[in-house]
């Protein structure tokens, strides 16, 4: 391509044009980002406002639902803490989630490694088998699992969730971790073994640290699945003291036809914000993990 001499005027015009285009693009990006945030978080922002509304403000269809038409009141939020077992529900969700994630890693990580690396003739079919397990949904298993839960004496106990939730998290975690572990170069563990580590040592010292982003992805994903689970708790646990937030909050704040709306909205926001906050902290690792495992074949 021949380079044509550009006059100063032409260059300035060109520069102006590019600047204009650049500014338009920037404005577009910010507009799109704001729209996306409103689309996703709109209901939560509105929930946060509603939580502090007086009844007379809320139950008037003429009132603007997005502003306070009467002075704000913290009563409904304090009600959540003083008159319901909200803190117990939140605590149950937290410890069940943490335990389930630990159990999941303990089971899924070695299994994924065995399937991804220790070339056995049956590892292919078994991998497919574990993926198929993921396709057997809670909505199919809850009826027979409630028998199992009764059989081991865990009905109406939070421990029934610790027992049963890994059925949701283990198959999907094995499936994801297989991808992440395959992305770790084989040389790394071979080098570790040459250096005198056993196969197990190589796995723990060389492979696991390199697969760390993938493991973080699985931890975050598994915790979110556990916190959202609904069918099993609904079917297995009926005493409020044993419930997690997903069933406990509706049980205590919806009494027959009476909805404690402001407290319900407060509970939603109080649960939503910390989980999303933590997830966001790990989002880049989560994406890196997915990229490692899912995209590179």
């Amino acid at each position: 391509m021949a380079i044509q001499p550009v006059t100063a005027e032409q260059a300035a015009a060109l520069r102006r044009r590019y600047t204009r285009r650049h500014v338009a693009a920037r404005v577009g990006v910010y507009l799109a980002a704001i729209l996306a945030a409103l689309f996703c978080a709109g209901p939560f922002i509105w929930s946060a406002i509603t939580a502090f509304k007086q009844n007379r403000d809320l139950y008037n269809p003429e009132n603007n639902p997005f502003v306070f038409n009467r002075p704000a009141t913290p009563d409904h939020v304090t009600y959540l803490f003083t008159d319901t077992s909200f803190l117990t529900f939140a605590w149950n969700t937290l410890w069940v989630g943490v335990l389930v994630v630990l159990i999941t890693l303990l089971f899924a990580l070695p299994a994924a490694y065995a399937l991804a690396r220790l070339d056995r003739p049956w590892s292919g079919p078994l991998g497919i088998g574990i993926f198929l397990v993921y396709l057997i949904p809670p909505s199919l298993l809850f009826l027979s699992l409630s028998r199992v839960v009764v059989g081991v004496g865990l009905q109406d106990s939070t421990w029934s969730m610790v027992l049963v939730y890994p059925t949701i998290t283990i198959p999907v975690s094995v499936w994801l971790l297989m991808g992440f572990l395959r992305a770790v170069p084989k040389d790394v563990e071979e080098q570790a073994m040459v250096d005198g580590h056993s196969r197990l040592g190589a796995f723990l010292r060389a492979v696991v640290p390199l697969a760390f982003p993938g493991i973080v992805a699985v931890v975050v994903f598994a915790f979110t699945l556990t916190a959202s689970e609904f069918i099993y708790t609904l079917a297995f646990v009926s005493p409020p003291g044993q419930m997690p937030v997903s069933t406990g909050v509706p049980t205590q704040l919806i009494r027959g036809d009476v909805f404690f709306w402001q407290s319900l909205q407060a509970a939603t926001v109080l649960v939503a914000v910390p989980i999303a906050f933590v997830f966001n902290l790990f989002l880049d690792r989560f994406i890196a993990g997915f990229t490692q495992g899912a995209v590179k074949g």
């Binding site: 996703c40 916190a227 997690p244």
Partner: peptide, 15 residues
Amino acid sequence: VLLPWTTPVALSSIS
């Protein structure tokens, strides 16, 4: 943006 997915579905549905 993450909020809808990370919130337990029973609670966001109530909202």
